[in-house]
Amino acid sequence: MSQSPDSGAARAKGCGVALQNVTLGYDGHPAVHHLSGDFPAGSMTAICGPNGAGKSTLARALAGALKPIGGAILREGLPARAIAYLPQAAEIDRTFPMDVFDMVVSGARVGLFGALGARVRESAERALAAVGLQGFERRPIGALSGGQTQRMLFARLMMQDARFLVLDEPFAAVDERTTADLTALLERWRGEGRTIVAVLHDLAEVRAHFRRTLLLARECVAWGPTSDVLTADNLARARRMSEAFDESAAACERAA
């Protein structure tokens, strides 16, 4: 965190993501309602909120895996391949006979038929070293612990060399040491001018490492510098605002 917050942004100018009155949902029921704001290029934003607040839904939409049912998500200068998404509890078949190196290298941007040259292999080795998994290249993926699996997935993220990264609860089931290591990686990536958005539960972690926070409770409670957002007042409001889907809800007036 030695760099000024703007140095990375300057390098990655025009690669942030902006939301314009975005409504997201399933079967017409909104999970996220009329959200506007932006994730500036080169920033690191945490998305916080109670369960059912629509955090994962927003993450999917930011990654392009879910179309908004209203409003628009503007990704200027960001082609789909420049966006990387780490879903919550990635659905990896851990019984598949594949080793860690192959898994990591599958993130390489060489297309489906491109050759995996020496350069790609070297960068995969570097990615493995960066996440602390050197020596694990030939381990089967099924032999890794939960924390090691998450490290492997971070190495694969690194291979994707994305400018906009969306991570959904990346530290949900990993210990403090792994969380600290992987957070350091996130900060390194931000320093390289990448834009990072992460769904997180641990408010202490957010306060310590994320300058910007979006507090979500199906609607925006607060969005801005973390110290202004994570106040006792806002958190209490977020808890009150998160309620269950209303099956008989009328059509939204604001949608018109």
């Binding site: 879903p87 990635a90 659905e91 594949m98 599958s106």
Partner: peptide, 23 residues
């Protein structure tokens, strides 16, 4: 031989393949 990589990726982590390609 041609399908090997997408077939393996689609088997081991279909969600990842879906976010990176349409294959």
């Amino acid at each position: 031989a041609l399908l090997y990589r997408p077939l393996v990726l689609d088997t081991v982590d279909p969600a990842f393949l879906a976010t990176t390609t349409r294959a």
